[in-house]
Design a protein around this nucleic acid. Structure first.
Length: 417
DNA sequence: TCTGGGGTCCTAGGACCC
DNA sequence: TCTGGGGTCCTAGGACCC
């Protein structure tokens, strides 16, 4: 049996943890650069604010309903997420962290899964302050579906166990949900399947797996099996190693100055390299993207990659390569809105065999990186950075509604008088 | 004026091997 | 000279997830 534990409106709930005055008010959280709505409390959904809407289009609506608006405070969400995962791990035998707000737990051998689900939910609410729902079922897809039921239907009190439902109830619930709401069915399939008279989750459950495979590929065939309780997706307690690391951000304002582009690219290279070292990996290849706005007539999507002489995790090597690429793809006179750095061809640092003529990172380089990482861990992610990053401010990310990092910065602790 | 960021998997087709 | 059968690797593009 699998359980899927999922924080409700997670980012919005995180913003409420230290703000009891917001417990009944509508809350929304915006994407980077205050671009789009990416999380909404139940009250904000009721007010009619759509998911993914550009903020400038719903700002009037938000004001009218007294919605509390927040810029994305990823540092806060990541810390509360880690606490939530630790809390689940204190009760569940094995955990697969699926995303920042969700985890699968392996409940094989648990006698009363519903009772455990209730306990997990209560503990997360009490220890972390975030409401969560639990779905329990013999496959991941059904666990997702049950979690969805628990979220939408108060009759489940936050925990829905497939095993507790009669066959009639199961079919009834499957008939009442559109196929497009199912995990693994996205926009395209959600449009294509109804053309073949597959409109509800029940219709897909009744479909012939072999025919589904022929028409839509192995992914849809697996979903059909999973709906019958035949697991096709494995429980992955140990996350597979990442294949690429990407850092990119939109700019607050358009940028035409190559030095500001280089400042942004340097920042992203620093951040990506830190993530690389965090997972004990080396990169053999680095790529850079610079984009003008998608919404303007005159456009340029610049992109190039270069191979490094030896696999490395040295920020200075990676950022120098990234800056060279940026210089190569930059077109004078274009107004850029976004830049990114991607690290590719990742390998495990501990399994790496050096090349006699190209030994890669020196002991001196590794010691320097360790020192930078430990200073940044203690004093904040950008305590040590390249002087190149000090150029300009247009490339910075807009974050006009940022909340304090209540749990990770001494000077932003909540004060109570 | 203002429109996010970070990932993975699958498939088809081409190039190449014996 | 031409052909059949079996295989791998790489890439681009599409689709999906949160």
């Amino acid at each position: 049996m699998f359980a899927l534990i999922d924080g409700n409106s997670f980012f919005a709930s995180c913003e409420r943890v230290f703000r009891p005055d917001l417990w009944r008010r509508p809350v929304i959280v915006l994407s980077n650069n205050d671009g789009c709505v990416i999380a909404r409390s139940a009250e904000a959904k009721e007010a009619g604010i759509p998911m993914g809407a550009p903020f400038f289009k719903v700002a009037g609506l938000a004001k009218r309903y007294g919605v509390a608006v927040f810029s994305c405070n990823y540092e806060l969400y990541a810390d509360l997420s880690a606490r939530m995962m630790a809390c689940i791990a204190s009760l569940a035998p094995a955990l697969e962290v699926y995303s920042i707000d969700e985890a699968f737990a392996d409940l094989s051998g648990i006698a009363d899964a519903s009772a455990l689900g209730m306990k997990i939910r209560r503990r997360i609410l009490q220890w972390i302050g975030v409401p969560a729902c639990v779905g329990v079922a013999p496959s991941k897809t059904l666990a997702k579906f049950c979690n969805h039921l628990a979220k939408k239907n108060p009759c489940f009190s936050g925990v829905c166990n497939w095993g507790d439902l009669s066959q009639d109830e199961r079919l009834q619930w499957m008939r009442s949900f559109r196929v497009s709401e199912l995990w693994g069915i996205g926009r395209k399939l959600g449009e294509k399947l109804p053309e073949q008279r597959i409109r509800t989750v029940f219709d897909l459950h009744e479909a012939d797996p072999a025919a589904m495979r022929r028409r839509y590929g192995v992914t849809v065939e697996r979903i059909v099996h999973e709906l019958h309780g035949i697991p096709c997706l494995e429980f992955e307690e140990i996350a597979p190693t990442q294949r690429q690391i990407l850092r990119s951000r939109s700019f607050a304002e358009e940028v035409s100055d190559i030095d500001e582009i280089k400042a942004a690219v340097t920042r992203h290279a620093h951040s990506a390299a830190a993530a690389l070292r965090q997972q004990d990996a080396l990169a053999s290849c680095v790529g850079v993207t610079i984009h003008t706005s998608r919404f303007k007539a005159e456009r340029h999507f610049g992109w190039d990659v270069s191979s490094l002489p030896a696999p490395t995790s040295d920020t200075l090597v990676l950022s120098a390569a990234a800056v060279r690429l940026a210089e190569r793809i930059f077109r004078p006179g274009m107004k850029y809105k976004k830049a990114g750095v991607v690290l590719l061809e990742l390998t495990n640092a501990n399994a790496h065999t050096g090349d006699f003529f190209n030994p890669g990172d020196s002991a001196r380089s590794r010691a320097l990186m360790r020192t930078i990482d430990s200073i940044n861990a203690r004093y904040g992610g950008e305590a040590v950075k390249s002087a190149a990053e000090l150029v300009g401010t247009k490339w910075h990310t807009r974050r006009d509604h940022l909340s304090p990092c209540y749990t990770t910065r001494w000077d932003e602790l909540r004060q109570i008088r």
